[in-house]
Design a protein around this nucleic acid. Structure first.
Lengths: 224, 224
DNA sequence: TTGACAAGTGTACACCGTACACTTATAGTT
DNA sequence: AACTATAAGTGTACGGTGTACACTTGTCAA
């Protein structure tokens, strides 16, 4: 009983802090995520965290890199199109698990998993024969779509019926007549009964983009 | 001199507060944007703001709607494709002016300009003959791309040479060898000399997407 | 002139990130 | 086994935040 005294208070470590931080941000959201709250979750006084992470900023850097580490790299044994499809879907799933990370994925000091990911994606395209400029274009459209979709998916929580009602309520308050917005009404009425599934919606747009890239794959030309 | 006493301290109003708030957020960024700072900018004590806005949350709602109000609606006299192109480019420009708004455009209580915008975009597609599900798809891809591109454009500030050097520095610190990331190196070396322009990059991806939509315009089918 | 109501003020509270000095626990050397 | 260097965890304190609440000031109607 010298080595392992008690299980209730095994010592901290930057890895353990990072892991707990991600878990807390997942369930509490980014606004409610604080150093004090994290310390409490770990059964420790706030300042104890600073022995393992420099400050909150660096902690967030590490958290984002954890998210990157959960993203599947484009499989090397696949052709570029299915490889991109796989990694895109994996990215969306990771961002769905960690909604707090969406706005920070590219804005923080890049960690190793970040670099590995970007390098692998760019490498996959280049090895598949994409000329440099075309690979940059391909990367840009894809990631913009992926991050943008994740952002909207997080924000637009109008899939649940209660929040939809609440949203309609809010609209009725701020604006007098919602007859002025017939096409919004159409969405709120038709969308729920259309069996909308955000995963297939994501795949639809993704395939559209990959289609376009396949078509322009070798030509240096612009679309249209 | 009864009506207009002095120009230096004309009375506040929610419009004036909102306008000053947008200006302050534009130049200071969202993190540095505080009620106290805004009050100081208006030459007034912090609590004075609360006579014109309920709280910071509602203030942010109003600020976002101002950004929406700056976005050009799809011109009714154009065909859907150029109309969408115009409104997409206008959206990106507005988000470039107000980078702080990018993550909030769809996450706040929608204001009138928000509703007008969404209604007009959806209406443009429907009037052009897009079946409902297809219009939803078209809307989803476009906005995901627009917001995602704006997000990356804000984050990746690697266009300036100094910050690129700094970023490379940071990479060299956290990771030993950056020879492990040959395709990232290729980007940092080739991209600056390739005359990269974010506006044309945006248009490239946008046209790719509009192309795909035009192709699938009438078929209810999924891409590829 | 007076009285009502809006606009602006001042103080105070709970929360945040974290600097700094302190105490406790652990591990390596004699 | 005793001592000591170093790491791990603590407590207090400071300047920042949003904002509740009671107060004073300004402005117009009667």
């Amino acid at each position: 009983m010298t080595k392992q005294k008690i299980a209730t208070r095994r010592p901290l470590s930057s890895a353990r802090v990072l892991q707990a931080a991600v878990a807390l941000a997942d369930e509490a959201g980014l606004d409610a995520f604080s150093m004090r709250g994290l310390a409490q979750e770990l059964g420790v006084v706030p300042m104890a965290l600073y022995k393992h992470v420099a400050n909150k900023d660096e902690l967030l850097d590490g958290m984002v890199d954890i998210v990157f580490s959960e993203i599947e790299l484009p499989p090397g044994d696949l052709d570029w199109r299915p490889a991109m499809r796989r990694r895109a879907i994996s990215t969306r799933e990771a961002l769905k698990r960690h909604g707090w990370a969406i706005g920070m994925m590219e804005s923080r000091h890049p960690g190793p998993a970040n670099l590995r990911n970007h390098n692998a994606v760019m490498g996959c395209l280049r090895k598949a024969g994409f000329p440099f400029e075309m690979a940059v274009h391909a990367y840009s459209v894809q990631d913009a779509y992926i991050y943008g979709f994740a952002l909207q998916e997080k924000d637009l929580a109008f899939e649940t019926p209660d929040s939809a009602g609440e949203a309609a309520q809010g609209r009725a308050e701020t604006i007098g007549a919602l007859d002025d917005y017939p096409y919004l009404v159409e969405i709120t009425t038709k969308l729920p009964e259309s069996g909308y599934d955000s995963a297939v919606e994501f795949a639809w747009g993704l395939d559209l983009i990959l289609d376009g890239l396949d078509r322009l794959r070798h030509t240096g030309a612009a679309p249209a």
